[in-house]
Design a protein around this nucleic acid. Structure first.
Lengths: 334, 334
DNA sequence: GTGAAAGCGCTAACAA
DNA sequence: TTGTTAGCGCTTTCAC
């Protein structure tokens, strides 16, 4: 299968390759008659310009690399969806890379992305440490963080205010009449979704209930660890009437445990989730949850990255998108 | 930020660019001393070979385009996960394209993928019609279908045997003692996940129960339409003791409806799902479901595509991966 | 308005 | 073992 090039088009239409190039890039600069001939030849030969050759000249590939922990995580998938849609709008494609939080793998990906001349990188969802920062630096590509941030290294980012969201979560539960409130938190070593939500929650209770809350157990944002955390929490304090979970999946784990004990949600215990992924609408009961604008986070991240790539200045390096509380069925007003 | 090239490395290490190229591609053919010098220069300059220039010569980019309906669909995400992992193994990257089943969008994507010189395409999850076939033909790139197939056009594909899976689903329910069985099917116009599952199910009941089943309602594989379908089904025949749903999400929709009626799953009515996505493990009750090997489908698709790209012959154009039944809690043995 | 030719960064003969 | 050079497919001066 011979690859057909601009030369073939030129020959068939009886013009020079420059003219063909012109009808591709500045059609008005070519006399109508010739232009038509060229266009016809392009159709006839089913010619597609070679983006590699173009990229070599333009130094822009309209491709960007996306580093994510795992595409099968619904939250991540939601963010990616927003990125892809915005990418289509802007004519850029996404190269997907699952890191599984494996640093070595990330370094390898970054290397091939650099070689493939991607215009930029968006890094999603994971905390940034000194080492990551070094790696980003070395690769020397525009980068934006989506659903994560890095104040100390001043990398552009898009996310919600997690601490405030958790604070609001606490307030919401209090408003609903709860005073004996528990939390299933992510690990506090997680500086994005763990620690800030933990802190925000505690602060909310301190401010409104003047109480130092110790009804907190920990898991890893997933179903199983949360199931067990709920068990511990219930053992520790069965008088709890509401628990705030640091992710929707955790909320489901908690509900599942309570279900085995014959404890009803929300009649006996209220559950408040976090994320508002699709499962929040499909569980029984449907989850009341802190909604993160996953799709918007993705869109904004791409938008911001494009600005960086094209050298525009950013209005704000760190942008916070608003969270909301989506009320469904898992929290009861006492 | 000047892009540094093979020339810079050559100059710094005092050799010709060919030598640099050699240490990159056939290190043993270069004398140790020079090789070390070159390697040192590469490190020092933080040089990354330009994959565009390479691709221009090799006619191979180690990138492949992935056309999916929607990444936020957990089934699709599972398949993509498998593809990406296999891709990493083989050193190829995935360019993600959400089509939302929009043909125009698909055509545009295919065009830019062609221009970007991807080595091949994997098309996921949607039925193929005459028009699609034409489009694929025109683009003239190796293509494999994942979780879909096209017998008439003989396009290589990887999926399960949907009809047999649905047949097995019917048999399973019968084995569990059910005789009054319903189904919530996808649209029969869907030639992949709709019609075959519908047919397989009916055939199962015919073979084992000698009965022409009419307890079938239709939805679009999603929660809401299935919720309503379950309502219709229950109105039509409240004596049903089991229903087979054409997707896990549908199963959840059905369960949700039953729940509002105070009908317990599986005590009063058993529910059998399809897919075995993550939600099947997180619902109450946990879903007994027909498991599709999403991850494996993805891996195999990439493997097969790579074979086509490298000109190897395929053992089988159409490959069927085995499905299994994962027993959890939503089906009761009568 | 159009064509010839240089050059993007690299690999692969071909010489030496 | 190494260097020189042509050429991958394209855009872009620079003449005409």
């Amino acid at each position: 299968m011979k690859t057909i090039t601009i030369k073939d088009v030129a020959k068939l239409s009886g013009v020079s390759i420059s003219t063909v190039s012109r009808v591709l890039n500045a059609p008005e600069s070519v006399k109508t008659e010739k232009r038509e001939k060229v266009l016809k030849a392009i159709k006839q030969l089913n010619y597609h310009p070679n983006a590699l050759a173009r990229g070599l000249i333009y130094k822009r590939t309209k491709s960007i690399g996306v580093l994510i922990p795992d595409i099968s995580n619904p939250f991540v998938a939601g963010v990616i969806r927003g990125m892809e849609d915005e990418g289509r709008e802007l004519g850029v494609n996404l190269i997907l890379c699952n890191t599984d939080r494996n640093q070595e793998r990330m370094v390898r990906y970054l290397k091939v992305l650099k070689e493939k001349q991607v215009d930029g990188i968006v890094f999603t969802s994971d905390p940034i440490n000194e080492e990551y920062y070094q790696i980003f630096n070395e690769i020397d590509l525009p980068i934006v963080l989506a659903a994560t941030e890095s104040r100390e290294y001043n990398i552009p980012s898009v996310k919600i205010e997690d601490e405030k969201a958790a604070y609001d979560a606490a307030l919401y539960l209090i408003e609903k009449g709860h005073t004996e409130i528990g939390m299933i938190s992510g690990p506090t070593t997680d500086t994005i979704a763990g620690f800030p939500r933990y802190m925000g929650f505690k602060q909310g209770l301190r401010d409104k209930l003047s109480l130092e809350n110790n009804n907190i157990e920990f898991g890893f944002f997933d179903y199983d660890s949360s199931y067990k955390a709920m068990e511990r929490l219930y053992d520790k304090n069965p008088k709890i009437t509401a628990v705030f979970c640091a992710s929707d999946e955790m909320a489901l784990g908690a509900i599942s445990f309570l279900n085995t004990k014959g404890i009803n949600v929300p009649e006996d215990i209220s559950i408040l989730g976090f994320d508002n992924t699709k499962i929040a609408q499909m569980s029984i009961p449907k989850l009341t949850t802190i909604s993160q604008p996953m799709y918007e986070i993705g869109k904004h991240a791409i938008l911001k990255l494009e600005k960086m790539i094209s050298g525009e200045s950013l209005e704000d390096v760190v942008t916070y998108l608003p969270h909301t509380i989506v009320e469904r069925e898992s929290v009861k007003h006492l």
